[in-house]
Amino acid sequence: MSGGVEWALHCCVALTVARSPASAARLAEMHDVSASYLAKQLQSLARAGLVHSVQGHAGGYELTRDPALITVLDVVEAVDGARPAFTCTEVRQRGPLAAAPERCLSPCSIHAAMTAADEAWRAALRGVSIADLTRNVTVKTGPDTLRRIADWLG
């Protein structure tokens, strides 16, 4: 998973408390990351329909829907794509001891284990929303954190 996922998730949490559209530059400054790098992550979120860009002097980004309806998996797939973490290349059918194709009609145990892990990982991320992350911010970093974020973006 790319580092862009982490930045995108932090931006989504920040946008839950923004009083108006937040610029990529302001979000980048708040997170101490390159504005051009963060803009790429925000553009990925926009292409996926999770945020939209508001043009003009007071423009910036805002969430397109309730944070409870945006999952962590939505953000991961927006930034990194939906491809599985593991791609089977049928190693068992290669080399001098290769299994015959007719003996490989079902996935091998490695493929099955990796697919099950990928499905479990996706289910776990699908079960956590941006609203869940936002609720946990005050527990993890203090009760005034969301107010400070809103004021910063203000």
Rank of each mutant, 00 (worst) to 15 (best):
L45F: 08
L45C: 13
L45A: 10
A46G: 06
R47F: 06
R47N: 04
R47Y: 09
A48S: 05
A48W: 08
A48D: 10
G49L: 14
G49I: 04
G49P: 08
L50M: 08
L50P: 08
V51G: 07
H52F: 00
S53P: 08
V54F: 03
Q55P: 12
Q55W: 01
Q55T: 08
G56V: 02
G56H: 01
H57G: 04
A58K: 14
G60S: 12
G60V: 04
Y61D: 07
Y61A: 06
E62L: 15
E62M: 13
E62V: 07
L63A: 03
L63G: 06
T64N: 13
R65I: 05
R65D: 09
R65T: 15
D66N: 13
D66A: 14
P67R: 06
P67I: 05
L69S: 13
L69R: 15
L69V: 03
I70S: 07
L73I: 00
D74R: 03
D74W: 09
D74F: 00
V75N: 08
V75G: 01
E77I: 00
E77G: 03
E77W: 02
E77K: 10
V79D: 00
V79A: 02
G81H: 00
A82N: 10
R83L: 02
R83M: 11
R83S: 15
A85L: 13
F86Q: 03
F86S: 08
T87Q: 05
T87M: 10
T89E: 12
E90C: 07
V91A: 15
R92A: 08
R94L: 13
G95P: 07
G95C: 15
P96M: 14
L97W: 14
A99D: 14
A99L: 09
A100M: 14
P101F: 05
P101G: 07
E102R: 10
E102G: 01
R103P: 03
R103F: 15
C104V: 12
C104H: 05
L105E: 13
S106Q: 08
S106K: 06
S106A: 12
P107K: 10
P107C: 06
P107V: 01
C108L: 09
C108G: 11
C108V: 06
S109Q: 10
S109E: 07
S109K: 12
S109W: 01
S109V: 09
S109Y: 14
I110R: 15
H111L: 02
H111S: 01
A112N: 05
A112K: 10
A113G: 03
A113E: 07
A113R: 14
A113C: 00
A113Q: 06
M114G: 04
T115Y: 06
A116E: 11
E119P: 01
A120Y: 06
W121C: 07
W121P: 00
R122F: 09
L125Y: 03
L125F: 03
G127T: 11
V128I: 15
V128T: 03
V128E: 09
S129D: 11
S129W: 14
I130F: 12
D132F: 01
L133Y: 04
L133P: 08
T134H: 00
R135W: 10
N136Y: 09
T138R: 15
T138D: 04
T138Y: 00
T141P: 02
T141W: 10
G142A: 11
G142S: 09
T145H: 13
R147G: 07
R148I: 02
R148G: 09
I149D: 04
A150L: 05
A150D: 03
